[in-house]
Simulated assay, not measured.
Amino acid sequence: MKRNWPLHILVMPAIIIAFIFNYVPLGGIIMAFQEYKPWFGFTGSEWVGLEQFKKIFAFAEGRQVIWNTLVISSFKIVFQLIIPIVFALLLNEVRIMFFKRSVQTLVYLPHFLSWVILGGILLDLLSVDGGLVNQFLNFLGIQSIFFLGDGDWFRVTVIATDVWKDFGFSAIIFLAALSGINPALYEASVIDGANRFQQVLFITIPSILPITIVVATLALGNILNAGFDQIFNLYNPLVYDKGDIIDTYVYRQGLLGGNFSYATAVGVFKSIIAFILIITGYKLAYKYAGYRIF
């Protein structure tokens, strides 16, 4: 402490901010076990035990938002793993550096745009009346599609736009893994008569398999995170039955509906499951890929 006190002082503001905004609010979890009334406070509200948690599965909409979250997040995880890998493999084969860097820059760019901006752009592009996408479909003789008003199409739109936004940035880790492959392996394969496809199949893919396993297993912790920012900026009452997720449901029940205890119970339920899945993901990553945090 005496030797490194300047470093402790340097990190102290971040610790204080994290404590105030991340740990102090944890005291509000008590609302999940109460029939919380703001005018009675934590001490005066009626204690109901696990009644709020029972409502999650008693209400049809509670079960539905859990199912919606699992469906949307599962497809996002799968495609956010497959497409970045394919993109990284294709980009790794490009030998024209100017073209390679230009493509990288273009596909990275959407990641740095917020869903507030992209949501507004997508609302215009996918509009039934005058949207460019539907105008193009009409030009091809296809009837207009209500992308953001039909539940099934809404799920497809959410998954596709999320993958489009982040696949380039997600590919960075795979490009880094590809750059670490020993060139001598490729040279030896050429001597043995292997073509480019065989090199990819028998050298490149097996070499990035460990990092692929790590990414896939660690993604289990996000199975209940379907993307609040994206859904919130794109959904509407017409797609609640197929597009409402746990985070948006908590927002509506808690902040808009004033049902603080029930919303807190849903949030706590999600956090407990996510915590278990994160621990499971780390154990699987360590078991099958030797991944360790420290």
Score class of each variant (00 low, 15 high):
Asn4Val: 10
Pro6Gln: 04
Pro6Lys: 11
Pro6His: 05
Leu7His: 13
His8Val: 03
His8Lys: 04
Pro13Arg: 11
Ala18Cys: 05
Gly28Val: 03
Ile29Met: 13
Ile30Ser: 12
Met31Val: 01
Ala32Gly: 10
Ala32Asn: 06
Phe33Asp: 00
Phe33Ala: 05
Tyr36Leu: 07
Phe42Val: 10
Phe42Ile: 14
Glu46His: 04
Leu50Asn: 06
Glu51His: 08
Glu51Ala: 12
Lys54Asp: 11
Arg63Val: 13
Val65Arg: 04
Ile66Arg: 07
Ile66Lys: 01
Asn68Arg: 06
Val71Ser: 02
Phe75Met: 09
Ile82His: 11
Pro84Trp: 09
Ile85Gln: 01
Ile85Ala: 04
Asn92Phe: 00
Arg101Ala: 05
Ser102Trp: 08
Gln104Trp: 07
Leu106Asn: 14
Leu109Ser: 12
Pro110Cys: 13
Leu113His: 08
Leu113Gly: 11
Ser114Phe: 10
Ser114Arg: 10
Leu118Gly: 12
Leu122Ser: 05
Ser127Thr: 01
Asp129Leu: 07
Gly130Leu: 02
Gly131Thr: 14
Asn134Trp: 07
Phe136Trp: 10
Phe139Cys: 05
Leu140Thr: 07
Ile142Val: 14
Phe147Ala: 04
Leu148Thr: 08
Asp150Leu: 09
Asp152Gln: 05
Trp153Asp: 05
Ile159Trp: 00
Ala160Glu: 07
Ala160Thr: 11
Asp162Thr: 05
Trp164Leu: 04
Lys165Val: 01
Gly168Ser: 12
Ala171Glu: 02
Ile172Val: 15
Ile173Ser: 06
Ser179Leu: 09
Ser179Gln: 13
Gly180Met: 03
Ile181Val: 12
Ile181Arg: 01
Leu185Gly: 14
Asp192Ala: 03
Gly193Asn: 06
Ala194Pro: 10
Ala194Trp: 00
Arg196Gln: 00
Phe197Gly: 15
Phe197Tyr: 15
Gln198Tyr: 12
Phe202Met: 04
Thr204Phe: 06
Ile208Lys: 03
Pro210Cys: 14
Ile211Leu: 11
Thr212Gly: 10
Ile213Tyr: 13
Val215Ser: 04
Thr217Pro: 04
Leu218Asn: 15
Asn222His: 14
Asn225Val: 05
Gly227Arg: 07
Phe228Gln: 01
Asp229Trp: 00
Gln230Trp: 04
Tyr240Leu: 12
Lys242Ser: 02
Gly243Arg: 05
Ile246Thr: 10
Ile246Trp: 00
Ile246His: 09
Tyr249Asn: 07
Gly254Glu: 12
Leu256Pro: 00
Gly257Asp: 15
Tyr262Cys: 00
Thr264Arg: 02
Ala265Cys: 01
Phe269Glu: 06
Phe269Met: 03
Ser271Cys: 00
Ile272Leu: 00
Ala274Met: 09
Ile278Arg: 01
Ile279Ala: 02
Leu284Gly: 00
Ala285Tyr: 03
Gly290Asn: 03
Phe294Pro: 04
